[in-house]
Design a protein around this nucleic acid. Sequence first.
DNA 1: AAGGCGGGGCG
DNA 2: CGCCCAGCCTT
Length: 344
Amino acid sequence: MSDFATRLIAWQQEDGRHGLPWQVADGYRVWLSEVMLQQTQVTTVLDYYPRFLAQFPTIFDLAAAPLDDVLALWSGLGYYTRARNLHKCAQAVVTQYGGEFPRDPALVAELPGIGRSTAAAITAFSYGTRAAILDGNVKRVLTRWAGIDGYPGVKAVENKLWGLAHALLPAEQIEAYTQGLMDLGATVCTPKKPTCLTCPMNADCQARLSNRQGELPTPKPKKTVPEKSTVMLIIRNDAGQILLEKRPPTGIWGGLWSLPEVESTLIASELAAQQLGLKIELEPALPDFVHVFTHYKLTITPQPAYAIAVSALHESNAQWFNIDAALAAGIPTPIRKILSKTPK
DNA sequence: AAGGCGGGGCG
DNA sequence: CGCCCAGCCTT
């Protein structure tokens, strides 16, 4: 039987994914796709990626753009730190490296938003650099194939996996090999119901031999998620516009436009007057809905209101938007949900 | 309702 | 370092 890499490369060429728009030897395109794919499924990225490239055809265009434009294109993808780092990284690559990513993965990993695995993917696909990736797909493939117990987020387990990932690297055809690892994890060695019968590693996969595919990788220890609630004000003015506030640059929905929030509807009017400098009249609240994050549950009460006395706004980070303009701005998903139901 | 998915930043 | 933070989508 041929070794791991030989089998994987042969499998990739025959049965792997081909023709994805970012399968090109171009640092900018590979980097953009890798950052989008960090927390997002391929099918979603296939939707966002071409729009993004159309507006920013080169890394120079991205570096020169206002952050707000980048966030607007990122709207709905989540983990908005990625968009801010993407923008910073483009500027760094332009100023430090003349617009081209370095060939050394260690240098690439110094850039904002790029860690060891993403750096390896960028250099492997762009330059054929011999560097090991270790993303979620690879962790799953390797823990199963080698029968490695323990949650991969634990340092000792992760170190073991990096060592194995490096040891398995072939001398050449890094691109097909790296793509093969990703493809195998995404299409065969899936989290649930892996299709081991078609897997090129099935003959010596430790998980399969011991029938432990369902137990590996060892799952993350669970924690109880806190529940929070908030009231979101949908304040209209005479012109039918809506008031949005820009959130602070870090923390949840950092840098995005969002609805003003108060803790309860009872004090909404007072707080609006105080914080925004607006006199408002509350309308009946809309039904609550729950937005679930991994780390907490947020119950949102949408509270429509009408601004009766509009003077200059207190806050420089608050602004009136037409609904269409708001929907085109960088806004988080629940806000989009509320605004798309708001009549124009 | 739960699981999956990399990297940054803080103490 | 270890630990916490962060937002979607799919199952």
